[in-house]
Amino acid sequence: MIDFILLAVVILAGAAGDVSLTRGMKAVGEISGFRPAILLAVAGKVVRNRFIWLGILYMTVAFFSFLALLVRADLSWVVPATAASYVVETLAAKYLLSEKVTRTRWAGALCVCLGVALISL
């Protein structure tokens, strides 16, 4: 039970982190190269973006929950089980964002559900 609660925190905080980081990095703009001068300029923009910091905060919560989960459970369960995020995202797309969710996507989400059930046996 504790494992599944920790898993839920890892997934929800991770998803919130992804959304925030994406929004932040889109604002920063495409990284046009890997020369030090370019990277320095990018780093300057990154640290001044509030969505990046919010994303990092969410990611930190997800990370420490992940560590706690690893103390208790096998890595070969923990990592595939985090794929339940695909199910959460599909449900969020349908019921929070009122997006049109195709049959293929429902089938995929169902596959992930069955897979998580199987690895949890």
């Binding site: 096998d74 890595l75 070969s76 369960w77 595939p80 794929a83 695909y86 995202e89 599909t90 969710v101 195709t102 293929t104 996507r105 089938a107 995929g108 989400a109 169902l110 596959c111 992930v112 559900c113 069955l114 897979g115 998580v116 059930a117 199987l118 690895i119 949890s120 046996l121």
Partner: peptide, 27 residues
């Protein structure tokens, strides 16, 4: 690296998860 025993059922579940993720991705 961690000497975890992966049962055939766990492998099957993992493959289902990857297939499911891929299906979701296709949309």
């Amino acid at each position: 690296f961690l000497s975890e025993t992966i049962s055939p059922v766990r492998w099957a579940g993992t493959l289902l998860i990857v297939a499911g993720a891929w299906l979701v991705a296709r949309t």
